[in-house]
Design a protein around this nucleic acid. Structure first.
Lengths: 317, 317
DNA sequence: AAGATTGCTGTTACCGCTAACAAGATTTAC
DNA sequence: GTAAATCTTGTTAGCGGTAACAGCAATCTT
């Protein structure tokens, strides 16, 4: 593998100049830079990450904590992870994935954390390295998330546009900021349109949503659309409705939230608010690397736009 | 952060002796080792991975290639990845996740590859670092996989034990070793029991399996059990049957393969051959690290035992 | 008892890179 | 025209480890 020294010889400069051409190009004459870069290309130079890490007292490693139960959230995080990992790789960072914070062996340059619960705040606030959370939070910690409010706004507006008389929100029964945001988005659009909001909440399990439909079927009038806070709930709602009436696509509507795997498994496929998981991953990584580099941390909250993905669980037109 | 030098001072030896106490303890007097280890404990010593990597001409990075379409396989690989990552972290290795082999920037000490297709053999054989595949293959490359044959044997035996008259195999229409193994397991048990094997194959999409049931329903006698080569197909078979007859649990049976997410989404939950994904991940990592350390590579093929997970898609007793 | 062997520890040099400083050349200031 | 400022490049040292070798005492050979 070519080293700085090798490049230096070919370009007839010292290795320090080569190093500078890479890290502080403004300090090197253009003429030299040209020959240095062509030498680098010729020798297929790849910086030695370990050497760089050693001299900078860094590790070039980022830890990604998944604090939620991985069995339940499996499909959700894979794309996020890919987004994170590919962005990091571009900047010669690699990843350690942790599902249990006590296993915290070895050093890193920063943390990306998802699935944080209230009791995690204690140890997270004590971390001495830059941290980025995936998911809104009430602790004034930097985070990246989907614009949850906008997501349910889009969903609710779409339901109204399709002419559903009654638009009901099926929420997740947790006291988390993301849930409040989703409910808010729904409520806002309902109020803008002088409609009465109607919200029901369940733990995030499809069978609870399904049971709800079956238990209250007599009171569920046709031409109702359910805006759900997750695809999991939407999946249950849809199953319940199909059990009671096969005419879902025309008489009823179901809109989910997430757009990760489950929406495609459903038949018909769910109309859903799709989170840009890959881009969210990239954004987490980008924000974290910036915090590491700048060593100065104004609070940053980044919200990415979701996309309404039309499936067969709502009527067309 | 404490360094070897710090330990050395406290233990009144040279840093070389400390290094030896860690890496070649047989060359150091017990007496010194005791004081060195207690100094290490006292100062909470953690080796500097970058320094070690630099001097050993290693990177302490492993690349994990997912060559299949991540959208489709999302839930499947998450647990595998966790298994890999946590094992690697224990030995101070970190991970780079690649979903596109052309993005191959930066060095590593070895590769774990999954979803390899025939056309990938070309570049994989040219890799100069140790490689472990996840998944059986015909190329004499080291691999780790579930014991696929045993999996369908278990499933087929269970179906016969439950008294199903007719046991049909629904395969994936690909010419891959894992599929042959799964079909073989089924065929073997059928022959042991003097039954005629019956195999149908489809691309791995649930709706194809569902369509098959609907199209051939008149020829599908009650008391039939379907052994499927994936949960995806099993999911489709189940949906098809439910559409035709609500009595699946007593008249029909469906057994899937994978046990990753989809089996739990189905209603009733699928009986399935569960792959030990976490352990498979650990095994991939363990095998690869061993190959890196030993620098000598006898072909190794490691098969882990699957587990039959009983759900509601087969009858009890 | 002298030389050879063994067992254990220390010294040196180096892995590839970069910050800090040194130093020469050129431009600017007055 | 000379001193100071600026621009550009090179030299040195060191990040935290480890291999290779040197050195010395204790033990073994014959």
């Amino acid at each position: 593998m070519a080293t700085l020294e090798d490049i230096a010889k070919v370009a007839h400069v010292s290795k320090m100049t080569v190093s500078r051409a890479i890290n502080h190009p403004e300090l090197v004459r253009d003429e030299l830079k040209t020959s240095i870069f062509s030498a680098m290309h010729e020798l297929n130079y790849r910086p030695n990450v370990a050497a760089k890490a050693l001299v900078n007292n860094k590790t070039q490693v980022i830890k990604f904590f998944v604090l939620e139960d991985i069995d339940i959230t499996e499909p959700y995080y894979m794309k996020l992870l890919v987004g994170i990992a590919e962005y990091l790789a571009k900047y010669q960072y690699s990843l350690q994935l942790m599902t249990d914070q006590h296993l915290d062996i070895g050093a890193s340059d920063g943390y990306i954390i998802t699935g944080m619960r209230d009791e995690d705040y204690d140890w997270i606030k004590r971390l001495e390295l830059p941290v980025v959370l995936f998911g809104e939070n009430r602790w004034r910690l930097d985070f990246v998330d989907t614009n949850n409010e906008m997501g349910t706004q889009m969903a609710t507006r779409y339901a109204l546009e399709q002419g559903y008389d009654r638009v009901v929100f099926i929420g997740i029964d947790v006291k988390e900021p993301f849930e409040y945001s989703r409910e808010n988005g729904y409520i806002q659009v309902m109020q803008e349109n002088q409609r009465m909001p109607e919200i029901h909440r369940f733990a995030n399990h499809s069978h609870l949503a399904m049971d709800f439909i079956e238990a209250t079927w007599s009171r569920i009038t046709p031409n109702t659309c359910f805006i759900c806070a997750s695809d999991r709930l939407a999946f249950g709602i849809q199953k319940g409705i199909l059990q009671m009436s096969p005419e879902i696509a025309t008489d009823y509507g179901v809109i989910g939230f997430d757009g990760v795997f489950l929406d495609q498994v459903a038949t018909p496929q769910l109309t859903t608010v799709e989170q840009p998981m890959y881009e969210l991953g990239e954004a987490c990584a980008e924000l974290l690397l910036r915090k590491i580099k700048d060593n100065y941390y104004p609070l940053e909250e980044r919200l990415l736009q979701p996309k309404l993905k039309i499936g067969g669980s709502t009527r067309k037109k």
